[in-house]
Design a binder for these strands. Structure first.
Length: 451
RNA sequence: UCCUCGGUAGCUCAAUCGGCAGAGCAUCCGGCUGUUAACCGGACGGUUGAUGGUUCGAGUCCAUCCCGAGGAGCCA
């Protein structure tokens, strides 16, 4: 068997082949030449490892080929796996002592150097930028967050029901929507699947949808995209308190799983893990009344908003929080915090008013720590048909398009609740990123959709 | 939509008071047996975002526009 062809192995599995002859196929991330020695850093999608080409160990042709390889050239290298503390890469610690190599394509000069670049340049080369180690780590974590979210829901009796992306009207009647031509009739890209989820719970009990949503808002901040992915669970026979329990269980599960399964990626991102390790139930709960009092106490004392370089602005009871308010509130806790019972006037029409205190509703937002802002928003839904009709009219919305939605309250209405989780903000928080644009392979931002 | 900052070599940036357009990296050539964004020597590299104006002279000052970044509002 001495003439057998060496196996093609993944870099993440190199360790298992120590001392053996293997082939790795991938792309050249970086190269350092040193006379009769060439260090090749090879990526294959699963990781990155160093391949060492000694002139005396390979044919003259192969050594010359190694010298002529450019960054991002595709290649196969065959050699013996050796443990070496000096070997860079991820997982790292193992390198390939090359015996032969086969360039597949020698790449043209690569525009992205392994050093500092500006945001504009990198975004224009997003199709190439995603090859970089940091982006690789982020997008792998994103994929695993998605997997963990779905896994937890699937294991807890939720049925995945996909909701439409093309919709006839605004679901909440608030935010700006992208309009398209639906065979002569105006239609809109969905900003939420919630109303359809509410129909689905009467068939399946617990459901979730998970897909892209669209907001045509002129938002240009580190927390906003025009197209983002939202996970929306909806649960029958569930009130506000139970809704918060579901959220803290789900989010804690995801984070603890990422800490274990993506330790390598988090290390690559140099993420401070102490914040994430604390994310376990229960999360603190803060009533809107108390939040307002906290903010105004801080405003009076002239406290600074962390990372904002301005003092906490005062707030009137009944107003929604601005970004500085949310950032200040979240900074007062060492884990995500629920803020519940917002004023009804600043929330959507379908949220259940608090019995005996209709000026507030049974709504809840989850604020992530470290300034990442609102990552979920949800509520107990109004279940009484007459109250819902009144709420729709009070918000100045037409009744006719909501007839099917009102049907849900006519045929076996029950207490139910749901929430939406912004995937990109969650990824940014877990990865410790400055901006959500790096949390999705091809972000859609204000006036920016190429590539 | 509003506020603030920015646009100079492929990339990251410098250029004093308005006075010769510069450096590092990348690329190419040569050297080096343990490099980690290697190092040493050499070469190549410019419509200073666009248009108009002020001036003997504009990267620099003025006006308008284009593009980008951060923030506000709104939201996940």
């Amino acid at each position: 068997m001495t003439d057998s062809v060496p196996p093609i192995v993944s870099i993440e599995n190199l360790k298992a082949y120590e001392g053996e002859l293997v082939t790795v196929q991938g792309w050249l991330y970086a190269k350092t030449g040193k006379g009769r020695l060439q260090f090749l850093q090879v990526r294959d999608g699963s990781g990155l490892c160093q391949a060492v080409v000694f002139k005396k160990n390979v044919s003259p042709e192969d050594f010359q080929a190694a010298k002529e390889l450019t960054r991002e050239s595709s290649l196969r290298v065959t050699g013996v796996v050796k443990a070496d503390e000096r070997a860079p890469g991820f997982p790292g610690g193992y390198e390939i002592d090359v015996r032969s190599l086969e360039p597949i394509q020698v790449a043209e000069p690569y525009p992205i150097a392994p050093k500092e670049h500006g945001v504009e340049f990198l975004m224009k080369h997003r199709h190439l930028w995603i090859r970089a180690p940091r982006q690789w780590a982020i997008l792998r974590i994103r994929a695993n967050i998605t997997r963990a979210l779905r896994y937890w829901l699937d294991e807890h009796g939720f049925v995945n029901v996909d909701t439409p992306i093309l919709t006839p009207a605004a679901a909440e009647g608030t935010t700006t929507l992208f309009e398209i031509d639906y065979h002569g009739e105006p239609a809109y890209l969905a900003q939420t699947g919630q109303l359809y989820n509410e129909a689905a719970i009467f068939a399946f009990g617990r459901v979730y949808c998970f897909g892209p949503t669209f907001r045509a808002e002129k938002s240009k901040t580190r927390r906003h995209l025009q197209e983002f992915w939202m996970l929306e669970p909806e649960i029958a026979f569930c009130d506000l308190e139970e809704l918060m329990e579901v959220q803290e269980q789900l989010i804690s599960y995801v984070i603890q799983r990422i800490l274990v399964e993506n330790a390598l990626e988090l290390r690559l991102l140099e993420r401070d893990l102490t914040h994430l390790e604390r994310v376990r139930p229960p999360f603190p709960r803060l009533h809107y009344d108390d939040a307002v009092a906290m903010i105004n106490r801080a405003a009076e004392a002239g406290e600074k908003v962390p990372g904002y370089d301005e003092t906490v602005p005062p707030i009137q009871w009944g107003d929604d929080f601005g970004s500085p308010h949310e950032t200040y509130l979240a900074a007062q806790f060492d884990r995500p915090v629920f803020v519940h019972h917002y004023p009804s006037q600043v929330k959507a029409f379908y949220m259940e008013p608090e019995p005996g205190r209709p000026e507030v509703c049974r709504s809840v937002d989850l604020l992530a720590p470290e300034g990442y802002g609102e990552i979920t928003g949800g509520s107990e839904r109004m279940s009484d048909p007459e109250k819902l009709v009144a709420a729709i009219q009070k918000h100045g919305l037409p009744l006719e398009p909501y007839q099917w939605y009102l049907d849900l309250r006519r045929y076996g209405s029950v207490v139910h609740s749901g929430f939406g989780l912004g995937l990109e903000r969650t990824v940014a928080w877990i990865c410790g990123l400055e901006h959500v644009r790096e949390t999705i392979a091809f972000p859609r931002m204000l006036h920016y959709m190429r590539p």
